[in-house]
Design a protein around this nucleic acid. Structure first.
Lengths: 175, 175
DNA sequence: GTCTATAAATAGATAGAC
DNA sequence: GTCTATCTATTTATAGAC
């Protein structure tokens, strides 16, 4: 009795684990249902016993991933510890930690070396421009992240007044 | 003589214009060659006279888009004017301005309402956590953009020492 | 250089056996 | 619930006419 239920729950959890990681790293379009199921150790056909569509899986995977990501910070309450945990090279690599907030905003990292080079060069140009305008190196880097990240995140948000507030905050470098 | 050359150059420019905008808004995988060509007023078959593959187009489109985006700021040298121009609602909408740096980092904005809701809620949770940890509203918003944007941008960058420097800068809220 | 037609591969979704 | 087989649609890329 319980075995069948546990078995199904276990399969669904494995699918969600795989999907959360694969989507976070590679995006919705890049990852196929087949890839998710293979990563979870199952086959295509079994998918539709758990989810009604790929979009359905995506929605559940984000929720699942963000809850899991939040749990990793649930016992941390100090600002600098949160910030340090989040802004770590390990998080950039994304093996054990892969917050959907930061990962579900990437297209470049899926591309080849040439394209990544172009992106890096372009980003450096913006940093240079900010330094030439009077900011020191650290200020320039931070302001570029506030600009690029601010616009990218705003585009993903659903709340217009939050976007307005967010953009305003990103304009103030001090404080 | 010159007509043929101009004609080809003109077509290629139209393709690049279309591609820069469509890729920036929707990502590499979402946009098909057919969509780019239709947007440029041409058909599929004509594509391969200008580019050898979709990836080739993508690389050129980023370069083209970033140069164009930089030109829009070429006469502006004051920090606050640059920041204001960049962090505008118009840039978030992305009609006339669409910096590849900020747009080529998006997956969520292509998804449906439910998924955007989930993303917004998740982002708000992170902001709340930062406020509960002692930051005021503006500081919390800014720090969240530095975290989420910092990790997302780092993943796109090709330069390891730049990533280290970038992450360190994003940890310092003041300055 | 641009067009139409088509080849070849990939992916979302369904059907039916176990 | 999970599997294999299959349908259908989309998409990258090529071939050949104009």
């Amino acid at each position: 009795m319980a075995w069948n239920k546990d078995h199904k729950e276990n399969s669904k959890k494995r699918i969600l684990d795989s999907a959360a990681k694969l989507f976070a790293h590679n995006g919705f379009k890049t990852i196929s249902i087949d890839e998710v199921m293979q990563h979870a150790g199952l086959t295509r056909g079994a998918f539709y016993s758990h989810f009604k569509s790929k979009s359905d899986l995506y929605a559940e995977a984000i929720l699942y991933g963000s809850q899991k990501s939040r749990q990793q910070l649930s016992n941390v309450f100090e600002v600098d510890k949160i910030v340090n945990a989040y802004l770590s090279e390990a998080h950039v690599e994304g093996e054990e930690r892969h917050c959907p907030l930061a990962f579900l905003v990437s297209d470049i990292n899926q591309q080849n070396q040439t394209i990544r080079d172009t992106y890096t060069t372009t980003f450096n140009s913006l940093v240079d421009k900010m330094q030439l305008s009077g900011l020191n190196r650290e200020q320039a880097l931070k302001q570029c992240v506030l600009m690029v990240g601010g616009v990218a995140i705003s585009r993903a948000l659903n709340d217009k007044s939050l976007v307005t507030e967010l953009l305003a905050s990103c304009k103030e470098l001090d404080g």
